[in-house]
Amino acid sequence: MASFLAKRLLSGVLLLFAISSLAFFLIYASSTNIASNILGEGATADQIKQKSHELGLDQPIVSRYFSWLKHALHGSFGNSWANNDSVISEIMRRLPITLSLVLIAILISAILATTLGVLAAIKGGMVDRVVQMLAVAGFAIPGFIIAIILVTFLAVKTHIFPATGWVAFTDNPSNWAKSITLPVISLVVATMTSSAQQIRSAVKSVLERDFIRTLTSRGISRREIIIKHVLRAAAPAGLTVLSLQFVGMLGGTVIVEKIFALPGMGDLVVNATASGDTPLVMGIVVYTVIIVIVVNLVVDLINGWLNPKVRVK
């Protein structure tokens, strides 16, 4: 188990290093006139030179990279070019909003997708056909169009929910719940249907395995076989589906936050890229990759623990 964990960790660190390096060189190598862009059109050549020096842009890219890496290893991603705030504090302000959105959505989605998927697999017939149809519909209507529909009908036309804005949980729990209801629904609807279908096929393939027939022949009830044996055997596949869904949701929040004007990471990344705020973009990339790695690691750990072959060693 320890070596299994170490291997996964190492692979995660490698991934983080590879992605951040790639992002750094891509972004910096192609960014031109950074200083003059920041200063605006009226800047003199001297001012631009001064600013470039200040930002370290007159250094060769490789040495800039190592300097960035050194600071990053010490937990600093520098300051935003746009407002000179520390990148980390900016991200830390935004991250809780996005994470609470995604975590609540993934929880609801996991419960719904598992219920629907398992029912479709074991009941077949109508339930099965409905799940299949939902999967097509969920795929065909992009999440942000669902968000737009929700805003139009439940916020703009009927005012049941606020159309935009964020209320902190600590300020007012019931308004907080209202402010995240529509965003969460948008995220859930967009991903749940496809997960349900994947969980359905995972359960179906377990049902076809030999040991299920043998358990049946021993006089164990179908109910117990499904709850104990089938769900257990399908759990790793289900968790993998959910982890992919989690990553998908991180991307999905970008649009959802924009539509509902939530001040989360998605909103931050849109603004940062629009203004060419490179240190902030780099910080966001690194944080996102870290989150993805942590999620995958947690799923690997649970799957390792679920699998006797890995656990018992």
């Binding site: 992002a23 891509l26 990553v247 990344v269 790695i293």
Partner: peptide, 15 residues
Amino acid sequence: MSLPAMIILLSVRTV
């Protein structure tokens, strides 16, 4: 496959 495509797309947009 493990990367959120949307965020990557936005990040490289500066490029």
